[in-house]
């Protein structure tokens, strides 16, 4: 495994305190996409059943992997990314297979 990692922090504007995670920075693989990040967040929040989350970095929704984001923005894994998370608004068929 080639463990290229990047430092991130997870923040939210959601009013629900139950969705607030501790501000500790996280060192994660750059290969992570929405699903993997959502899994980590659920783990940190100790949710009973998984809540799908969406991630916004600097105003844009993360569609691919963190590495895709870094590359398309001319950044390296030296960056410290702030990931704002919100409950994902997924089409019904997606929710069913989540």
């Amino acid at each position: 495994m080639d463990p290229h990692q990047v430092k991130i922090k997870l923040v939210t504007r959601d009013q629900d305190q139950a969705l607030h995670v501790a501000p500790n920075p996280l060192y994660v693989p750059v290969s992570l996409k929405r699903y993997g990040l959502s899994e980590i967040l659920n783990h940190l929040l100790e949710t009973e059943s998984p809540v799908p989350f969406e991630f916004i970095i600097d105003g844009t929704i993360l569609k691919g992997s963190l590495n895709d984001y870094l590359t398309s923005n001319g950044l390296s894994s030296e960056a410290f990314l702030t990931l704002e998370y919100t409950r994902a608004v997924l089409p019904p068929k997606f929710l069913a297979s989540f």
């Binding site: 430092k7 920075p25 996280l26 060192y27 994660v28 693989p29």
Partner: peptide
């Protein structure tokens, strides 16, 4: 304080 390596986690 909030970004200290002492509190940093990894997966």
């Amino acid at each position: 304080d909030q970004e200290s390596i002492l509190d940093m986690n990894q997966v």
